[in-house]
Design a binder for these strands. Structure first.
Lengths: 245, 245
DNA sequence: AAATTATTGTTACAATATGTAACAATAATA
DNA sequence: TATTATTGTTACATATTGTAACAATAATTT
């Protein structure tokens, strides 16, 4: 976790520079081995798991704050980001978990500490290339790891609800080429694209119907053939006509 | 403008009870005479127009805050509400307009006044029965009026962008019966329903195709006939099978 | 009372999209 | 050379959508 690079801010937080009561949470999706993966933080010594998140600087655009969080966790810039909902449930005001984190880390605080107030969470989901990501833990966390979306650890506060809503929005957007562009390699076979769809939607799709729909959609360009080494006809490889960025 | 009832809070705001930097803005849609209407506030003596909005109490759910704003402006409870986006552009931090409002109203303030900070706006759209609404101005405003969505006055800050995004979401949700349930009378003819669709979508629809789609959707129940007084066949009246609430 | 008018409800048919099965192509293996 | 597994293609049934034609009918006009 973060052995290669460390994007953590070196200085401790100066809370004066941040908007109080507003947090940014990110559901970071990756795709590997036919599994939809999510990046999850574990707070030091507390056994508390959470979505990667951060705060909004007073001089910063919302989306830039989300980009900053993503850079700090993944080292990647120019990531696909989509704001999907803002969560403000009062049970988010449960200071228990954060209280535990501060105490276990021997950090000084009183009950009016920035982190112990009620927070409204503006939430984004991100689509990243699993292979390019080097997950980095932050100053309060001892790990930042990919988890299969079907085997998430118990998450803090309403973070599981946030994940579920993000997945719902991802499913609604699956036909936009930006999904495949960011979760697959540059080139892929039709079966690999179908596997991605089936993983995200959580259901099997008809092979020929899928093939036809994709070819008619106009978002794919067929390239050469790909030798698989298997005892059967070799598939074509495709790429999206749209540029990644 | 609030001649019948006044839902304004009697007491001046105690800013201590509210989350700083977080506002709630509402795009309130009504429908009348084949026009999509929006409720707009005009601040006293300033010529500044804005969406109805308010602030989030520290002990209040986000959606309850939006409901409170709606009640204060329309006198209605149990309104259909949908959170669609959160706006946080730095240009929202432009204190010019609010500065003007406070000054013109001879309200004391300094540059750290609650209202002069940067705000993040969690935005909802609402669907209300035009005929049941009695628009009420608030303490800073001298009017709260319906405007045709095609003839809105110039709006404060990014409020026009907020309206446009709300309309986009309304258009995406138009096939859900909740739209017709809240914008039309309990019973209506097929033509009246089609008029609503055409107004919201901003385009003409094919009559027979619309009729068939609606009947096959299963969300309509046909009642008796309606004498229109016009020299032609009288239409059926319909209602939605789903209950209003 | 019969013809006219305007709009509604229904039917028909074409065009398009979707679900499913059959079949041909082919790269490696037996 | 035959076998095997998977791919690309074609075919056909079913469902959906776009469009036009036509029949029904409530009030008005003649």
């Amino acid at each position: 976790m973060g052995t290669m690079t460390d994007h953590r801010p070196a200085e401790p937080m100066n809370w004066e520079l941040y908007m109080p009561g507003i947090s940014i949470d990110c559901v970071i999706f990756g795709y590997h081995n036919k599994e939809l993966k999510i990046l999850i933080l574990e707070y030091k010594k507390s056994g508390i798991f959470a979505l990667p998140g951060g705060f909004l600087r007073k001089d910063e655009e919302l989306k830039d704050a989300a980009k900053r969080v993503l850079f700090e966790r993944t080292g990647l810039r120019d990531i696909y980001l989509n704001q999907f909902h803002t969560f403000g449930s009062l049970k988010r005001g449960d200071i228990g978990p954060m209280h535990t984190v501060l105490r276990k880390n021997n950090m000084p605080f009183d009950n009016r500490h920035f982190l112990l107030q009620r927070f409204i969470s503006v939430s984004y989901y991100a689509l990243v290339d699993f292979k390019q990501v080097d997950p980095v833990a932050d100053i309060l966390s001892d790990s930042c790891q990919w988890y299969d979306s079907h085997h998430l650890p118990p998450l803090m506060l309403d973070h599981h609800e946030i994940f579920e809503k993000a997945l719902e929005h991802l499913r609604n957007n699956i036909d936009r080429s930006v999904v495949g562009l960011n979760l697959l390699d540059d080139t892929f076979t039709m079966r690999e694209l179908q596997n991605l769809y089936e993983t995200i939607l959580g259901e099997k799709l008809n092979r020929t119907g899928f093939h036809r729909k994709m070819m008619l959609s106009g978002q794919l360009k067929r390239l050469g053939k790909k030798k698989t080494g298997k005892a059967h006809r070799s598939p074509f490889v495709y790429k999206f006509t749209e540029e990644k960025k």
